[in-house]
Design a protein around this nucleic acid. Structure first.
Length: 409
DNA sequence: AGGTATTCACATGAAACTATTCTCTGAGTTAGG
DNA sequence: TAACTCAGAGAATAGTTTCATGTGAATACCTGT
């Protein structure tokens, strides 16, 4: 049988919606960054000493996801680099995302930095201090300033908990090594999602870290609108999109702590869905569809990455809430979940964990928003958690299928 | 009736255990001089 | 000879168990009217 795909291809090729779809992708860097003038100026002010060949202060930037932290920092560093070329100042700016590619030890971060600077390091086998040495040598080769942009810096902090060995604390070592440098200097810009992350650092490191701080505030709905319409001009053909759509998107995203990334994502997916349906404009309900899809994908992805035990627990909960819908039971609690869980374990030949652990898994699922649990007291009949599913029914079905497939039930 | 005590079914914490992953070291290997 | 690779020892870590203690209110049990 010949499957005719021409119509699908045609849709995409003569698509009337997109002018340039890359504009809505996350990695796209716009030329204009609306509503971030103040932030950009601030970063520029901090980095400006570079132009005189002086070491700028270390800078910490906080802010929720999608508030433009990375974007602004990259923007400024690009501008600075341009300037330094004119002025012939020796500056290197390296961007490292500490979350990407499991960079969860000093060793790996160093290796990554070195790789970006053009030196290859074996992925394992060498003592960390050796790498430090090499790193220092590399920088000391010539007189220069090195600026490290450490995105998601909180990851680095989290990775170390042992108190006695300060050697393996990346940031602490970095600031100490900096004092040994003769020719060159290192500064860094740390970007973090959590404001609280400074609390978990020991005080010596802290003092060397936070010379300057800046907090990115979330965008409000109006600002998001500006950002979106700016991009829309580039991304879509004329008449495809109405201002109502834009404000709806931004309203959705503003509800979630003003995340611009999310707003753009929403718009892009809505557009793609419209395109698939061969529409010429983006209609209102496609935003809702997109919103659902995003949520859907998020949950599915999360569930997919669960370890087996959590999958079984979740599956047990789904089974129980199905019973609840059929009015077989009214409510269910930790004990019920544990019982069904045990049955499932026997069926799937899985090791049975203790109830203590299942309790913890339940709280984990709760914090992820997949279930809701409230501790209640049933008086004479004990104290327990009342558990309900926290995801909408249509997602639940997909999750259920996914789980059945994964567990072979 | 009103008050107190009991009791259930877990929650919540801390510590100990364990299996897996990482780091580090020295021995072996390779490549270039 | 310097640089790299690799295996195995030991350390760190995440996931889990064991033990211990805590908890809110429905119920059981008094107590005096």
């Amino acid at each position: 049988m010949v499957v005719k795909l021409d119509d699908i291809f045609d849709n995409v090729m003569n698509n009337e919606i997109f002018k340039d779809r890359s504009v809505l992708q996350i990695k796209y860097t716009p030329e204009n960054i609306p509503h971030r003038d103040e932030e950009i100026r601030y970063i520029a002010k901090i980095l400006a000493p570079i132009l005189n060949g002086e070491k700028p202060s270390n800078l910490l930037i906080y802010g929720k996801t999608g508030t433009g932290k990375t974007l602004c920092t990259e923007y400024v560093s690009k501008q600075i680099l341009k300037k330094t070329k004119e002025l012939r100042v020796n500056v290197k700016i390296e961007y490292i995302n500490c979350r990407l590619g499991k960079l969860d030890t000093s060793y790996r971060i160093l290796a990554e930095i070195m790789k970006k600077m053009g030196v290859k390091i074996p992925t394992t086998g060498l003592p960390t201090m050796d790498i430090w040495g090499k790193f220092i040598d590399l920088i000391e080769e010539k007189k220069q300033l090195v600026i490290l942009i450490l995105d998601e810096i909180d990851q680095i902090i989290k990775m170390k908990k042992t108190k006695d060995k300060e050697e393996d604390n990346f940031l602490y070592t970095l600031s100490r090594k900096n004092q040994e440098l003769k020719n060159s200097q290192i500064s860094f810009i740390g970007i973090s999602n959590e404001i609280t992350f400074l609390d978990n650092i020991d005080s010596r490191t802290k003092s060397s870290l936070g010379e300057e701080e800046y907090i990115f505030k979330p965008y409000d709905a109006l600002q998001l609108q500006d950002i979106l319409s700016e991009r829309c001009k580039l991304a879509f053909n004329e008449g495809v999109i109405s201002s109502g759509i834009i404000s709806k998107c931004s309203a959705y995203a503003a509800r979630e702590h003003g995340d611009a990334r999310r707003a753009l994502n929403l718009l892009r997916i809505a557009a793609e869905l419209s395109e698939r349906d061969n529409k010429k404009t983006i209609e209102d309900e496609y935003i809702d569809l997109a919103n659902k899809k995003i949520e859907n994908d998020r949950v599915i992805e999360m569930v997919d990455s669960f370890p087996k035990q959590q999958k079984i627990v979740l599956y047990a909960i789904i089974l129980l809430s199905k019973n609840k819908q059929n009015d077989k039971i009214e409510k269910f609690y930790t004990g019920n979940v544990y019982d069904t869980y045990q049955d499932l374990c026997k069926k799937t030949n899985t090791e049975i964990l203790t109830q203590r652990r299942i309790g913890d898994i339940l709280t984990e699922l709760d914090t992820m928003g997949i279930i809701n649990s409230t501790v209640i007291s049933k008086g004479r009949y004990g104290r327990t958690k009342n558990i309900t599913l926290g995801i909408s029914p249509n997602i639940t079905i997909k999750v259920e299928n996914k789980l059945e497939e994964g567990l072979g039930v």
